[in-house]
């Protein structure tokens, strides 16, 4: 203790480490307790929702945490992936519904998923080329614009998306004769994709490329003086991140088997940024923790005895908001992060 008193920085570092440890233990034990309490079926649902949010937040962290581009338009790529999956695989007979009819293509899941990913990447290239001109607060504004535009495309391009009616009978994955129709099988599939996304992200951020991204985040102009074409680097990570979000979108559409534009509103995008900041910028593990906290909060508040059901939705946003304010006051680097925006 005496040594700690002499060296306050070491003391700070020690407690910092402990906060991370406690955050980890708290969230994980909370999750385990919750699942034991609610039973297996609920745990599977919780796990699937978590895994999809985790793919999204890990992918967004590549852009926000590692490259310093605060994008609140990420949900747009999630939506593009989801709609690609929905339109390609939906097998409903819309003609009988007397609403907007879209062609039913009836593709299998595994044929549509690469299209979800590629389409999100393609749109990201076009958007990214424009976005590369901006930085900092202006970047937030233009990414806001992207979220608004993509939502309005989903809502109003009715010949393709059926607008507010949404698309249903989105197919579940199938390999050979074996279908992932059970919830547990689907959870396993989503977790495999989450693991793949984490692996790719880890590989990227620990490579020379990842180190350059952090340098660009710190001082873009200095990075360019040392020989890096920063616009190419920013575009590359933006596209990779968008493709991961597209993947998450494809999985989400298939899991819910029905989507409409309400899943892709700006608020979801802002919640996503909150998750990334909550968990910690520039840490893959932190994004998992953030997503887990968010999902537990979202689902867990349903069971508070004193909270009427109709207020649950709003209450969780209030709690998340308060959590973020407290976090920014006392721990601006997030639960397990190192870097401050």
């Amino acid at each position: 203790m005496r040594e700690l008193a002499r060296n306050p920085r070491a003391a700070l570092r020690l407690t910092g480490g402990n906060i991370e440890l406690w955050a980890n233990l708290l969230v994980i034990s909370w999750a385990v307790a919750f699942m034991l309490w609610q039973g297996v079926g609920f745990a599977i649902t919780l796990g699937t929702v978590f895994a999809i949010w985790a793919i999204l937040s890990v992918s967004l962290n590549l852009v926000v945490g590692f490259s310093g581009l605060l994008s609140i338009g990420h949900i747009g790529f999630f939506g593009i992936g989801a709609y690609a999956m929905a339109i390609l695989t939906s097998d409903a007979s819309y003609e009988q519904l007397r609403t907007e009819a879209i062609p039913t293509l009836g593709w299998p899941f595994f044929a549509a998923l690469p299209v979800s990913v590629a389409l999100a990447g393609l749109v990201a290239i076009l958007v990214g080329i424009v976005f590369n001109r901006f930085r900092d607060d202006i970047y937030v504004l233009v990414s806001f614009g992207f979220a608004i535009i993509s939502f309005n495309v989903f809502l109003n391009w009715r010949a393709l998306t059926r607008g507010a009616f949404g698309i249903h009978e989105i197919s579940r994955p199938e390999i050979g004769g074996w279908a992932f129709d059970g919830d547990l099988a689907f959870l396993a599939l989503v977790v495999v994709f989450l693991a793949a996304v984490m692996l790719v992200s880890w590989f990227i951020v620990t490579s020379s490329f990842g180190r350059v991204l952090t340098a660009i985040r710190e001082d873009e102009q200095a990075a360019s003086v040392f020989g890096y074409r920063v616009t190419h680097y920013k575009l590359a990570i933006w596209v990779i991140s968008a493709m991961m979000a597209g993947l998450a979108g494809g999985l989400f559409a298939s899991w819910t088997s029905f989507i409409d534009p309400n899943s892709f509103i700006l608020l979801e995008s802002i919640l996503l940024v909150s998750i990334v900041i909550l968990g910690g910028l520039a840490t893959i593990w932190g994004s998992l923790l953030g997503a887990m906290t968010f999902v537990l909060l979202e689902e867990g508040m349903r069971f508070l005895p004193f909270l009427p059901n109709e207020y649950v939705g709003q209450a969780r946003q209030v709690v998340l908001g308060i959590l973020l304010v407290l976090l920014m006051l006392f721990r601006p680097q997030g639960l397990v992060g190192r870097f401050k925006l």
Binding site: R211, T214, E218, D219, A222, A223, F226
Partner: peptide, 13 residues
Amino acid sequence: LFNQITVWDNIMV
């Protein structure tokens, strides 16, 4: 400098 990365990474980059 690249402030929020290590001394080591500042050179490596």
